[in-house]
Amino acid sequence: MQVYTIEDFYIFLKTYTETKDNLIYRGVQSSNFKLIPSIGRLKSQKGKALDVIAEKRMLDIFKHRAYPYLKDYKDDDLEILSIAQHHGLPTRLLDWTKNPLIAIYFAVEEPFINNEETDYSCVYIHKTDTLVKLSQNFDPFDIKNVTRYVPKHWDNRIISQGGLFTVHNNPYDEWVPKDLQKILIHKDIRKSIKITLNRFGINPGTVYPDLDGVAKHIKWLRTDIH
């Protein structure tokens, strides 16, 4: 599906909220962005891809240095990995949401990169076969398949964004599940969609429910709308 108008946007919402169940969504600024976790996109100083040994070393350093903030999770690598991802450490996790409005917001949030070899932002949609178990815990480095994980609500952003993760057994290669769908959003409609989302209550102040989000929302209102 391609979105060129606000009417297309409404058709997308009707199609993927009223008739589909058990969907998760991921919005990205460019349709060229592949489903590769951030650790798989990270390169060493010599331009080489990292390996699992380097990945585990990064997590060990994070656990050591962030210990005062992680005491409640010190024995839970999966939860610590989700916290590390939240704070910008490259991991084998990919961010998703259960809310299609949030996914579209992330697709149109930042100005479009005009030097991209595409005219589209993108929302990935993945249909899962089973409901995720909230109590599920597993070793993120010892899985055979991509596995969904819902973190505990240790941060308000997770709650407001309907956030969850996919944990990747091979985070260095692109993930292309057989039932993956791709919604393309043309760059010329991005601003109008963002304004419409604001009317729905989806804006920086609600997506990021803290002072940073409030300030970002006020700045956007004054510079992009007025």
Rank of each mutant, 00 (worst) to 15 (best):
M1N: 10
Q2H: 10
V3Q: 04
V3T: 07
V3E: 06
I6R: 09
I6D: 09
E7Q: 15
D8P: 04
L13F: 03
T15G: 12
T17D: 00
K20T: 15
I24Y: 01
R26G: 00
G27C: 03
S31Y: 09
L35H: 09
P37V: 03
P37F: 04
Q45L: 11
Q45V: 09
K46M: 06
K46W: 06
G47P: 03
A49M: 14
L50D: 01
D51M: 08
V52G: 09
K56W: 03
L59E: 06
L59I: 10
K63N: 06
H64G: 09
A66P: 06
A66K: 06
A66S: 11
Y67K: 15
Y69M: 15
L70C: 01
K71S: 06
Y73Q: 10
K74R: 09
K74H: 04
K74E: 06
S82M: 04
H86E: 03
G88N: 05
G88W: 04
L89V: 02
P90D: 07
L94N: 04
L94C: 05
T97S: 10
K98A: 08
K98I: 12
K98T: 12
L101H: 04
I102E: 01
Y105D: 07
F106Q: 07
F106I: 05
F106T: 07
V108C: 08
V108N: 02
E109C: 13
F112Y: 10
N114L: 14
N115V: 07
N115W: 07
N115P: 01
E116K: 14
E116D: 14
T118V: 08
D119Q: 09
V123L: 03
H126C: 11
H126S: 10
K127G: 09
T128M: 14
D129P: 14
T130R: 14
T130C: 12
L131A: 12
K133D: 15
Q136I: 07
N137H: 14
F138N: 04
P140C: 05
F141G: 01
D142Y: 12
K144N: 15
V146M: 06
T147G: 04
R148Q: 11
R148Y: 11
R148T: 13
Y149P: 03
H153W: 10
H153T: 14
H153V: 14
W154P: 08
D155N: 14
N156R: 14
I158D: 00
S160P: 02
G162C: 07
G162S: 08
G163I: 10
V167S: 03
N169G: 12
N170M: 00
Y172P: 07
W175L: 05
W175Y: 09
V176L: 13
V176I: 14
P177L: 03
I183V: 13
I185L: 02
K191A: 07
K191L: 08
S192Y: 09
S192A: 14
I193E: 02
I195C: 11
T196C: 13
T196I: 13
L197N: 04
R199L: 13
I202R: 00
N203D: 08
T206A: 04
V207C: 02
D210K: 00
L211C: 06
D212R: 10
V214P: 09
V214A: 15
I218Y: 02
I218D: 01
W220P: 05
L221E: 11
T223R: 13
I225P: 05
I225H: 09
H226V: 12
